[in-house]
């Protein structure tokens, strides 16, 4: 492989890892900071992808569209609709035990998949949506992917900054206190359910944006593109490896896990072409065993839980 080939592959790799880093930070907001159990990440991902695709594309006879909005509006809409879905799932379940939310998120992810598959007027059904516009397409020539990587990095930086700021604010302190001891927080008169709901919605917003980035980068989305458990599962592994409640760990965990996941592709790529199905299965088994080993042997992940200051730096909220 030439140097240029390696470089362009690296950029490609970093974009995907970066999109996963967005997802992992989003899950960290929900699980790491608020203790929420979301195993329907693929659902929020799909909502974000489809929303942005529909918002930004020109008219098409195949599906809802024709809004032709700019990229940035697509991202925002993706985040907002995904947040709305989180609100709807959260209302009945977030006040209950954590496992109910888990089951409900699997359910909503499944329903989203069914809607995308069956409502052809909306999403072109199983044929999917193609030719999703890329921002500033046509500029930068062969360096376009480098430009897209820059967008991904900017979004990661923005989310990182906002999460850190949020978690160090009075709001974040209460959130962390809820995770430590819910009863105490209730006793001081805070509405625990509201704080949880806010973390869930914020995380879902970030997942929606991540989904939108994915749609614009790949230009094509279909219900089959969202192997639901696989995407969800990878994000969970990334979070667990990085260490819960640790944004920096989340990002490193995402890049590391994506590296391992890509590595298994090289490994199984050595099998003859007739064994593609088997190769795909072996990859998932390997990553599954990897997760179980981490859970059993290094539950705190590589970086453990970040210690945030409990000192009050601003007026109490």
């Amino acid at each position: 492989m030439t140097f240029a080939g390696v470089f362009s592959y690296l950029v490609f790799f970093l974009i995907f890892a970066g999109i996963y880093a967005v997802m992992t930070m989003a899950l960290n907001m929900q699980r790491g900071f608020a203790g929420l159990f979301n195993i329907g990440i693929a659902g929020f991902w799909a909502v974000g992808s489809y929303t942005s695709a529909i918002m930004t594309k020109g008219p098409s006879p195949d599906h809802l569209g024709g809004f032709g909005m700019p990229f940035i509006i697509g991202l925002l809409a993706a985040g907002l609709i995904s947040a709305l879905v989180a609100l709807l799932v959260g209302i009945p379940t977030i006040r209950l035990r954590e496992d109910y939310l888990g089951i409900a998120t699997i359910g909503i992810a499944e329903i989203i998949r069914l809607v995308i598959k069956n409502e052809a007027w909306l999403s072109n059904g199983v044929r999917g949506i193609s030719a999703i516009p890329k921002p500033m397409a046509g500029s930068f020539g062969s360096n376009y992917n480098l430009f897209f990587l820059l967008i991904v990095v900017l979004i990661i930086a923005l989310f990182y900054y906002l999460s850190e700021k949020g978690i160090n604010s009075p709001w974040g302190r209460i959130l962390r206190a809820i995770r430590e001891d819910e009863e105490v927080v209730k006793a001081v008169g805070k509405n625990v359910v509201r704080y949880r709901m806010e973390a869930f919605i914020l995380g879902a917003f970030m997942m929606g944006v991540g989904g939108a980035l994915y749609a614009h980068f790949t230009s094509f989305i279909s219900p089959e593109a969202f192997r639901p458990m696989q995407a969800t599962f990878l994000v969970w592994i990334m979070l667990i490896i990085g260490g819960s409640a640790n944004n920096f760990g989340s990002i490193v965990g995402a890049f590391l896990t994506w590296g391992i996941w890509t590595g298994t592709e090289f490994l199984t790529g050595m099998l003859p072409a007739a064994y593609t199905t088997q190769a795909a299965a072996i990859r998932v088994i390997l990553i599954g065993v990897f997760l179980e080993l981490i859970l059993l042997n290094r539950p705190q992940g590589l970086f453990g839980e970040k210690k945030y200051s409990s000192a009050s730096t601003t007026a109490d909220g």
């Binding site: 954590e98 458990m229 599962f233 088994i285 599954g288 859970l295 539950p299």
Partner: peptide
């Protein structure tokens, strides 16, 4: 309990594959 549940999600994927 979330750790046990995520581990069972992992077990599910391993078995299916």
């Amino acid at each position: 309990s979330v750790i046990v549940m995520i581990s069972s999600v992992g077990a599910a994927l391993i078995i299916r594959n």
